[in-house]
């Protein structure tokens, strides 16, 4: 927000909030809200891949859905290429932004053939019909490494990796500029994950796409993204270039996440795993002050549980929301009881 908008910013998210009402009682009045996304500022640059990392339930998917205008925003705005998406025609949004869902099986109608699934975007937007559609679908399938014969099969006949390819083909069919990938690999085996990641990179190069890559595993992000945003309970706690983030994580939560990546190497001395104590608090009543203070090993009473840290720039666009950002090489005290 503070920066001047420059041309290479494709999407700008300002103070995005998404609260789901919790209804209850006799008259189904709104009793409380699930603050799934609670004030997020982001800029997504043209052609980059932005990774969004966080534990499940922290609001990543919700952020993506609001970003694409699939659910109405509670507060704040999403500006796409200079226009607020609320002012864009629905159809235009759909043609320019696409999404690949977390669960490849669930995102396909089990009663539709692959041809209909992949061709649906073209059909409903009136871009193609009949035989022409069949040819286009074949081309799309080819570009994600599937065969033309697969067209008449049904989703349940495919493996997880193949399903994700189909979903990708569907997302590509409208030739969008931007694709949101919501945990595209988390349902897949490790070997298949790599294939899909490579495919994604190829496609991005070929079509000049902008990606937002959502995942709960930091190690996946390392391969593919240029920048990484770390989310915790509906807020972004750290945002940095990938290399930067991995080299000098500043937020205690990022530290914890990084230390949880299994390291197969033998030569390095065994790193202490930071195991966070306690459960993730409910997004319906987030903790006061810093949301992480209930689990943070270095939280300070009187400050962290009262005052909410803002997202500050540490330089080089490395932003962090913490009162005590950690410097390079610093480590966290290891919780004894969690070992």
């Amino acid at each position: 927000m503070s920066e001047i908008r420059d041309d290479d910013v494709l999407i700008e998210v300002n103070g995005m909030k998404k609260w789901f009402p919790i209804k209850g009682g006799m008259l189904s009045t709104v009793k409380n809200y699930v603050r799934a996304v609670d004030g997020v500022d982001l800029q997504i640059k043209r052609g980059e891949t932005l990774g969004i990392v966080g534990e499940s339930g922290c609001g990543k998917t919700t952020l993506g859905r609001v970003l694409l205008g699939l659910i109405p925003i509670t507060d704040g705005s999403v500006v796409y290429d200079g226009t607020n998406i609320l002012d864009m025609a629905n159809r235009e949004i759909r043609k320019r932004m696409q999404i690949v869902f977390q669960d490849p099986g669930g995102s396909m109608n089990p009663r539709m053939s692959v041809r209909s699934i992949v061709g649906e975007p073209l059909m409903v937007n009136g871009l193609s019909e009949g035989a022409e559609l069949t040819n286009k679908v074949a081309k799309l399938l080819d570009s994600v490494g599937l065969k033309r014969e697969h067209m008449n099969r049904f989703p349940h006949e495919f493996s997880g990796g193949q399903k994700q390819r189909i979903a990708l083909a569907r997302a590509l069919s409208l030739d969008p500029e931007f694709i949101l990938l919501d945990e595209p690999t988390s349902a897949l085996d490790v070997s298949v994950q790599a294939q899909v990641l490579n495919l994604l990179e190829d496609i991005q190069e070929k079509h000049g796409l902008t990606f937002v890559f959502i995942t709960h595993a930091l190690n996946v992000v390392n391969h593919i993204s240029d920048r990484v945003a770390v989310m915790y309970l509906g807020k972004i706690v750290e945002l940095a270039d990938t290399a930067d983030l991995f080299k000098k994580p500043a937020h205690p939560y990022t530290h914890a996440l990084l230390s949880a990546i299994p390291e197969p190497s033998l030569d390095k001395e065994k790193k202490d795993r930071i195991v966070l104590s306690g459960d993730v608090p409910s997004p319906a009543n987030p903790p006061s002050g810093c949301r992480f203070h209930t689990r943070c090993p270095i939280a300070e009473k009187g400050l962290c549980d009262v005052e909410e840290p803002t997202l500050e720039d540490l330089g080089d666009g490395h932003k962090v929301a913490c009162h005590f950002p950690l410097g390079l090489g610093m480590t966290l005290p290891v919780n004894d009881d969690s070992l």
Binding site: L70, F101, G106, M108, E120, L174
Partner: peptide, 12 residues
């Protein structure tokens, strides 16, 4: 179910 949202996300 996700496929309904998927359909909506392509403008059906």
């Amino acid at each position: 179910m996700t496929f309904v949202e998927a359909a909506r996300s392509v403008g059906a």
